[in-house]
Amino acid sequence: MRTNLVLELLDVPGQLVGVLEPIGGLGANIVTVIHQRDVKTERGTVPVQITLEGDEENLDLVLKELERLGISVIEIDGVLRKEKITTILIGNIVDRDVKDTMDQINQLQGVRVADLDLKMAEEPLESSAKIIVEADYGKRDEVMDKIHKIAENKDFLVISEV
């Protein structure tokens, strides 16, 4: 079985070897590696396309190992991977322009607010909102940075996932 992965690596020497070595050790064969150093992202990462051959078990092991190494796999067999990020905000959510809060998050590339659940409290200052964001894999830090910035401006308490 063949699988195509797109990984996101920092463009520094040694990164690629650091990934290919452990893959080799897990019983999957590396068929091709395409390292596109000219398409650097804002965060200084470059996409690396790797084609692997092995049985399903070995490919699973590879994905687990990459996750353990903290390497984002952003695409598997042409499908972008998404992750769900749940956050709860407490504060004067409504008066501080809910739509603007959503818009600011949606402006991030590859990120969208998938669900919003508002609960009003007797005291408007203590309303809560649950926001579920669907983001391309590896964007968690960017999303959380954004939410923390909004919260700082609007005096919200941010309750994020551990």
Partner: peptide, 18 residues
């Protein structure tokens, strides 16, 4: 001190605790 019962209920719906 800012945690409300509403926020805990919202979290619970998604299988989370605060």
């Amino acid at each position: 001190s800012r945690i409300t019962s509403e926020s805990i209920a919202l979290a619970k719906k998604e299988g989370f605790l605060i």
